[in-house]
Structures are given as C-alpha cells and as structure tokens.
Design a protein around this nucleic acid. Structure first.
Lengths: 107, 107
DNA sequence: ATTTATTATCGTAATATTGCAATATTATTT
DNA sequence: AAATAATATTGCAATATTACGATAATAAAT
C-alpha cells in the first residue's frame, strides 16, 4: 500500500535503489554538478543558480547529505559544504558493479 | 506543488534523473537482475521469484519497458521479453559520463 | 549585544509512487 | 469456438515526494 517492501530484497538491491534515488531528481543532479564545479565551495548561491526556492534546495541538499555525499570544510572563516568525492566515486563504482554483473548474465 | 519543475533543468540532467528513477526501486533492480540472468528469456515467473503480486510486477515492468530496457523476442512459439543490453549499457555509459564529468570538476 | 545574512525546519498543498484485488485483454491450446 | 494460461489495466488506499511560505536557528559582522 504505497510503501516499499524492502524486506524481500537483498541489501545490494536496496543499496543500488538508494543510490539511484539520490540521482532520480534533476534538481539533485544539478545541485551535485554545481557543488562539484565550485572551486572554492561557496555553495550558498545554489538557490540563485537553480530556479527553486531556498527551502526546496535545502530539502534536496538533505537528501544528498543523508547519502553521505556532502562534507563540510572551512575556507578561512566561511563554512561551506563540498562534494564528498570518495563517496561519490563509491556510488559510481557500486552502480558499475551492478551494470557489469547484470549485463554479463544476460541472454 | 509536488510536481517537478523539469523546465528549469538541462536535458542531460533530466536524462540522468530518468535513468536513475528506473533503478530507484529495489524491485526494479531485482527484476532487471532476474531478467538478465534467465538464459532463455522465460520471464513469466518473475512474480514467483520476487515476492510481489502480478499487477505490481507488471507495473514495475512497464517502467522498465518505457525506459527502453525491454525487448521482445520469439523463442519457438513463446513470446518473451528480454533485457535490451544495448540500452542498458547506454544507461551505464551516460551515468559514468555524469560521474566522471562531475567528480573531475570538484574542488 | 544587536543587526544581518545564511541555512534549516515546520506546516501544508499538490502530485507521484507503491501495492494489491478485481477485471480485462491477449495468446495458446484443446 | 471454448477453455486455459499469461499478462495488462483499472480502481483504490496508503505512503512518499516535491514545492514553497512562514518561521526558527545559526553564524558573521557591526
């Protein structure tokens, strides 16, 4: 009834789905791209960059943060979040494992 | 108000999000894995394999089909769907492009 | 300490997703 | 053609997601 039956699936399947869910909204894709390309991590202007309200961006950022894709650093006095590249590459690796494993077994 | 503002995003961002959405449910991940590993494409028993009702599986299959990930073939008399490996690998490639492009630009 | 700027949270409305029972459709046999 | 099997669709309920205004919390600067 609208709720996913996660208990019937393997942890790997759930993991892939969780990773994919983070990327399953264009705003989050855009935010990730934007954060990554900002050299000095001044990320407060995501709201200006992407045409969504500040609460909405904050909500999307939370999804990204919960996935472990954000790390905070200090640049002088300013605190700013930055892409967790290691985690990001882990996402890529896990997805590639899924793709390779799955397509290799196909008829 | 609950609806994605797709018009503000680039076609690449939307494409990545669409690909990710297909993989964003463990049942669909499981279905893709199952279809891929079936040598002779006898896929009617997905329902037995995965613990979900036939309508629910059919619904998930439609999402997978709409993404272009299913092709139908004839094996003797039986029609059966099979993973579209080319499209599947295209998904992998597009995701890798996104990951490589994004992580390369990070601070 | 008080203003100012930035980010997070709350509340709420609209829409989407997930799941299944019931039913319809389609295909295959007999 | 009628029966059987397999898949798709419909309808509906429960939950999740998306979006934003209002507000709270946090940090920076005066």
């Amino acid at each position: 009834m609208g709720v996913s039956k996660t208990e019937i699936h393997s942890s790997t399947q759930i993991q892939i789905a969780e990773i994919a869910k983070v990327l399953s909204h264009p705003a989050r894709v855009a935010i990730l791209e934007y954060i990554a390309k900002q050299e000095n991590c001044i990320c407060g202007d995501i709201v200006d960059e992407i045409g969504l309200s500040q609460p909405t961006i904050s909500q999307h950022l939370q999804v990204i943060r919960n996935a472990g894709l954000l790390i905070g650093t200090f640049e002088g006095k300013r605190f700013c979040y930055c892409l967790n590249v290691n985690r990001f590459k882990e996402f890529q690796q896990l997805l590639n494992q899924f793709f390779n494993h799955t397509s290799a077994r196909c008829c």
